[in-house]
Write a protein that binds this DNA or RNA. Structure first.
Length: 572
DNA sequence: TCTCGTATCT
DNA sequence: AAGATACGAG
C-alpha cells in the first residue's frame, strides 16, 4: 500500500491484514471471504482445520490473523486455536454460529483471542455495510475487535505481525500500516489467573534469580512475550518496593520500640529471620511485631502505649500457608486512610516458599525480594473523644494478648484489607492457624480476632471467626472505620465488641444472598457472624486485581456481566 | 545477540 | 495506573 493512498479503506487498520479463514461451511466461507476482501484484507480460505494448519505451517509468517469456526468436522476449533497459538503465535478469531456460551468461555480460559460473533450477524453487517459503503467493518479499538455489532476480543499479539512485516518489507513497505498495527496492539491484561501463574513462577525461580525470561518459560503461556512479563515484573517490583518504603519509617520506630519492650536482638527488629513485624500503616495507630518467639506489640499512639494489655485487642494473626498459592498485598488499600484493618502488605508465598525460608534468606534492606510478609495496621480513629473501642476499651487481657512465648516460632502472616476480599482464604488461614497453633495458645492467653473494615457499605462483610475461636468474642467488622464506629450508639459499639454482630442492612442481605446464589459463599448467615466460605481463594492479586475482584457489589456485577455479554455478543 | 533493568510513553 | 516500548548495559 502506498502512503497517502486515496482510498480511505487502505488507510484504516487493518486493511491489508493477511487473514486465513477456516470454516467448514463453504457458503459462509465465501461470504466471509468476500466481506474481508472488500475490506482490503488479504484473504486465504480453507474448509478444514487440518488444512489450515498445513497452510499455516507451509507459509509461516504468511498470515497475520486466523479466523476460525468453532465447529469443524476434522478438528475442534479450539484445538486449532491451540496449535496456532503454540506454533505460530498468531491471533485467532473464533466464530460461533450458535453462540455456545460455555464453548466460548473455553476460549477465554485459553487466554487467546476470543471472539463472539455469529455468522448471521456478520452477514447482517455485510448488508449494512453494502448500504453504507463507507465504513470499515472491522476495526480494532483498545484490544477489542469490533465487527460492527459483533464484538471480538483479542489477546493476540499483533506486534508479531508488525515485526514480521518489518523484516519482510523494511525498505519498501507501508509504514502506515505497520504503525496502525503497532499502535493498536492489544494490551495484555494480567488477569487473576495470569498473575497467579506469574507469582508462582517468581516464587519457583526464587526472588534473587528471577528474570522475565525465566518467568515466561515457567508460566508457559504461549502468547505471552518476554516484554509482557518484563513489564509486569517491573510493576510488581515497584509495587513491592513501594511497600517497603511505606514500612521503612515505621520499621525504624518499631525497632526502637521493640528494644524498649521486648526484643534485644537487633536481627529481629524488622521481622526477618523467621519472624514478622507488624507495621502500622498510620502514625496514629499501633503496630505489632513478632520476633522469634515474641510478638512485639508496638503502640505509637500514647493512648494505647500506656496500656499494652489493650493493644492486642485488634490483633489478627493467621498462619502462613505453606501449601497455598501465593499472594501479594495491596498497598493502595493500605493507603486508604478511612479503612481500619489489617493489611498483609506482602506475602509472595509460593508452593515452594514459606515465610521462614523466605525471610531467613533475604537480607533486610534489599530490593523488592527482601520483603517479607508484614502486617500493617490501618488507621485508627484519630479523635480522642471517640476512641476506637478496641483500644479504648480493651477486652480482658486474657482474651486479647497474643503471648509470644506461647506461640510457636513459626512466622505469621496477617491478612488485612484483603480479608474482606478473600474470605475463603482467610477462613482457610484461620483454620490452619487454629489447627496448628490456636488451640494451644488459646488455652492460655490468646485472642485471635479477625476482622476487617471497609469504608463502603457495598462490601460483603466478613466477620470474626467466632466459631473457630470459641473462646473469643467474634469481632465483626462492618464498615469498621471511624465513621462507622462513631456513628454507632454506645450499646451498638458494645454489641459490636461483644457479639461481633450488628444488624445487616437489607441491601447487604441482598448482596449476601446474591453471592450465595452465585456459589461464592456458603454458610453465610445474615447476622454476619458466620464465615464466608468462598470458592477458590483469590490470592496474589495486585491492587487493581483486588479492585476488580473483591467480594463486593462490583464483583457481583462483574460476575453477572457474563450473561449480559452473552446476550450482546451471541446474537443469533 | 540475548536478556535484563530502568526510564519513559501511552 | 497498568502495560508497552525504548534503550543502554552486561
Amino acid at each position: 500500500m502506498e502512503k497517502g493512498s486515496i482510498s480511505p479503506r487502505t488507510d484504516v487498520f487493518p486493511a491489508g491484514l493477511r487473514v486465513l479463514v477456516v470454516d467448514d461451511d463453504p457458503t459462509w466461507l465465501k461470504i466471509l471471504e468476500k466481506m474481508l476482501i472488500k475490506c482490503n484484507y488479504e484473504v486465504t480460505t480453507c474448509c478444514l482445520a487440518r488444512e489450515a494448519l498445513e497452510i499455516l505451517r507451509e507459509r509461516k509468517d504468511g498470515f497475520d490473523i486466523v479466523i476460525s469456526d468453532v465447529n469443524m468436522p476434522d478438528m475442534d476449533g479450539f484445538k486449532l486455536l491451540e496449535h496456532v497459538g503454540l506454533e505460530m503465535d498468531l491471533p485467532v478469531i473464533m466464530m460461533s454460529v450458535d453462540g455456545e456460551t460455555s464453548r466460548v468461555m473455553k476460549a477465554f480460559n485459553m487466554e487467546r483471542v476470543i471472539i463472539f460473533s455469529s455468522l448471521k450477524k456478520i452477514h447482517e453487517v455485510k448488508e449494512i455495510e453494502s448500504q453504507e459503503g463507507n465504513e470499515d467493518t472491522l476495526k480494532m479499538r483498545n484490544g477489542l475487535f469490533e465487527f460492527d455489532s459483533c464484538y471480538l476480543l483479542t489477546g493476540g499479539d499483533l506486534s508479531l505481525s508488525k515485526k514480521r512485516k518489518d523484516m519482510e518489507n523494511q525498505e519498501h513497505d507501508d509504514h502506515d500500516f505497520n504503525d496502525h498495527i503497532s499502535a493498536k496492539k492489544a494490551r495484555v491484561v494480567w488477569s487473576v489467573d495470569l498473575h497467579q501463574k506469574f507469582v508462582k513462577a517468581v516464587n519457583q525461580i526464587g526472588f534473587d534469580k528471577v528474570g522475565p525470561k525465566k518467568i515466561l518459560d515457567l508460566m508457559n503461556v504461549p502468547w505471552l512475550t518476554r516484554e509482557n512479563v518484563a513489564s509486569h515484573l517491573q510493576k510488581y517490583r515497584m509495587y513491592l518496593s513501594r511497600l517497603q518504603k511505606q514500612n521503612e519509617p515505621k520499621n525504624s520506630f518499631c525497632a526502637i520500640k521493640q528494644q524498649d519492650f521486648i526484643s534485644k536482638d537487633p536481627s529481629t527488629s524488622f521481622g526477618f529471620q523467621g519472624s514478622i513485624t507488624m507495621h502500622q500503616n498510620s502514625a496514629a495507630s499501633c503496630s505489632f511485631g513478632y520476633s522469634g518467639n515474641n510478638i512485639l506489640i508496638q503502640d505509637v499512639s500514647p493512648r494505647i502505649h500506656e496500656d499494652l494489655n489493650g493493644i492486642g485487642s485488634i490483633l489478627s494473626v493467621t498462619e502462613p500457608r505453606k501449601t497455598s498459592s501465593d499472594e501479594i498485598a495491596d498497598p493502595q488499600k493500605a493507603n486508604h486512610s478511612s479503612r481500619m484493618g489489617l493489611t498483609h502488605s506482602f506475602g509472595s508465598l509460593g508452593q515452594d516458599v514459606n515465610y521462614t525460608s523466605f525471610g531467613s534468606t533475604i537480607p533486610q534492606q534489599i530490593s523488592w525480594g527482601g520483603k517479607i510478609p508484614k502486617v500493617q495496621f490501618m488507621e485508627q480513629p484519630k479523635e480522642e473523644q471517640e476512641p476506637y473501642p478496641y483500644t479504648n476499651q480493651p477486652l480482658p487481657a486474657s482474651e486479647h494478648h497474643l503471648h509470644a512465648d506461647q506461640l510457636q516460632s513459626a512466622a505469621f502472616s496477617i491478612s488485612g484489607t484483603s480479608i474482606a476480599e478473600r474470605p475463603s482464604e482467610i477462613k482457610q488461614l484461620c483454620t490452619e492457624y487454629r489447627n496448628d497453633h490456636v488451640r494451644n495458645v488459646c488455652q492460655t492467653e490468646c485472642t485471635i480476632d479477625l476482622f476487617y473494615a471497609q469504608p463502603n457499605t457495598d462490601i460483603v462483610n466478613t466477620q470474626a471467626f467466632g466459631a473457630t475461636f470459641t473462646r473469643l468474642p467474634s469481632i465483626k467488622s462492618q464498615s469498621f472505620d471511624q465513621n462507622f464506629l462513631c456513628n454507632l450508639e454506645p450499646h451498638q459499639k458494645n454489641f459490636v465488641k461483644r457479639s461481633g454482630s450488628t444488624s445487616v442492612s437489607s441491601e447487604e442481605q441482598q448482596q449476601l444472598c446474591s453471592l450465595q446464589d452465585y456459589g461464592y459463599f456458603e454458610n453465610v448467615e445474615h447476622n454476619n457472624r458466620e464465615i464466608l466460605n468462598g470458592s477458590e481463594p483469590i490470592t496474589e492479586l495486585p491492587s487493581h486485581m483486588y479492585d476488580g475482584l473483591r467480594f463486593n457489589i462490583d464483583y457481583l456485577r462483574e460476575i453477572m456481566e457474563y450473561p449480559i455479554m452473552d446476550q450482546r455478543l451471541f446474537i443469533a
